[in-house]
Write a protein that binds this DNA or RNA. Structure first.
Lengths: 282, 282
DNA sequence: CAAGCCAAGGAATAAATTATTCCGTCTCTG
DNA sequence: CAGAGACGGAATAATTTATTCCTTGGCTTG
């Protein structure tokens, strides 16, 4: 988690003086990077030592360390490379402009999606997936395709995976799950009735529920044990969920890669599966 | 241009002392960020003042400014996905490194894919899709998911689309196609037997064949009337086709957006389809 | 309600880091 | 071979950072 977010979160419980310092840093990270402790203190009308102490309270050994962390955090704000315009696509956009907007918005949703999930929450999801006896993937419509993609990958790792695009079959499958199993439910809106009901049933049966939804509060997320988030264009009319799907894929890809990294014999599994398929190539 | 690149470029024309300093910074930007001028000087056996002078010669007002620039450069490193960024993921990579590699390689394959297709060839594909009586989508494995995703989108535009994940069904469907129809065939290797046979049959029946394959020469591409290309990591053992799929999706997304742009009533169609689905939301 | 405790935060000061000045050395050039 | 000038280190000045110490005011407790 970035320092800026951390500071922002702690703002509430800080002493008034520290709060002022924290707020200034969160609001003006750029300026802060160029200010000395004394200058920063003067800027907000506090003493120089308070600034040093503030750094230390946050767990940094020096003010310079804090600066380094802020600089790092700022860069993680994943700004879209110059020239990549993000915005809706217009009727009279040229081919080149469309390319840029398309890639720009795809990149943006990927970046924001990885930034929206803490390493901790991802870690909890990994743990659940790793320890699961069976993994059921739920999702309808476009989310079903992502679920299937993820299921293919998990199968390549030798995991016990269930997914069917038919929500009745999904529901029937979930009714066989129990403690020790995991339900991985995808829905950008978090409001798809079928997926929601499936998650509720799983929850009732003691199955760990991982929900992958958009950021805003939604029923699916509320039901879940572990909440992961995807971020996409709100304006979906023209993009028709392109970025929502990209965000979901980014998240499942990330989980897959982390699983591979943790599983010593993963490469062997993947290699074997590719070898097996290769006999079907001309 | 990043400071590190700038330093590296100037290395040649620098005085020996400055060259040593510059080399150290280029080689160890991370350490440099945590060293004082004196410590850095000691590290390479030079005087503290040389380090300050070095910063000034580069045009920075202070050593701190140089540090800031290095920190900035380091973070932007991944925007220029040269070398390690799209390298394979290693067992001891940190979470952050994995994020960067993942997004870096995704971005790279998207950019290269749009660059690999001329506007002209894309135009021909659009024309074929627009004029098609029926559109059949072929693909197996991961490509089948992309085909299905594309088919959902085309259906939202009211097009006449056929796709089934079972290749026997695909083949049977193709046997009903003729002149005026289009086969859209996806295969990164261009060598999947089923897809290839399907394309051959379509060709024989006078159906226009659009092939989406990797760049290298391949049987599927040779059969096609219109050749589109996707670019992905060659090293796929660990990524398990993540980038190949992303490249295919980028291409189909692009086609979809261009179709929407050209079809006056597209938004209405898309809107209606979303409205229809919304009754299934909680 | 008073004594005592403690957190908050600033002033003063010590320590460190950074910037500048100055000077010797070496090289190139006329 | 003298002079100009680049190079770079030592010394020192200036600035910045870290620590110590002290006051204040709120809160607890007897």
């Amino acid at each position: 988690m970035s320092v800026l977010k951390k500071i922002e979160a702690k703002l509430e419980v800080m002493a008034p003086g520290d709060r002022e310092i924290g707020r200034y840093i969160v609001d003006n990270p750029d300026q802060m990077l160029r200010l000395s402790t004394a200058a920063l203190a003067a800027e907000i009308g506090r003493s120089q030592s308070s600034v040093v102490k503030f750094s230390q309270k946050l767990g940094y050994s020096s003010y310079q360390e804090l600066k380094l962390a802020v600089s790092e955090a700022k860069s993680q704000e994943w700004h879209v490379p110059a020239g990549m315009i993000h915005g809706s696509i217009e009727v009279d956009d040229s081919y080149l402009v469309i390319l840029r907007k398309l890639i720009g918005s795809k990149l943006l949703s990927m970046q924001q999606t990885v930034a929206a999930n803490t390493e901790q929450e991802i870690g909890k999801a990994l743990e659940a997936l790793n320890g699961a006896c069976r993994i059921h993937l739920a999702g309808v419509g476009a989310s079903s395709l992502v679920a299937r993609d993820f299921s293919y990958k998990l199968m390549k790792l030798g995991r016990n995976v269930l997914h069917d695009s038919d929500s009745h079959v999904q529901m029937a499958n979930v009714s066989t799950l129990g403690r020790g199993d995991v339900l991985f439910a995808l829905s950008y809106s978090g409001a798809s009735i079928e997926t929601l009901r499936i998650a509720e049933l799983a929850r009732k049966r003691g199955t760990t529920v991982i929900a992958v939804t958009g950021l805003r509060d939604n029923p699916l997320s509320r039901v879940a044990d572990i909440r992961l988030h995807t971020i996409a264009d709100e304006e979906r009319a023209r993009s028709s969920s392109i970025t929502a799907r990209d965000a979901q894929l980014t998240l499942t890809d990330l989980l897959f890669i982390l699983l591979v990294q943790k599983q010593p014999d993963a490469n062997e599994y993947v290699h074997n599966s590719e070898l097996a398929v290769s006999v079907l190539k001309a």
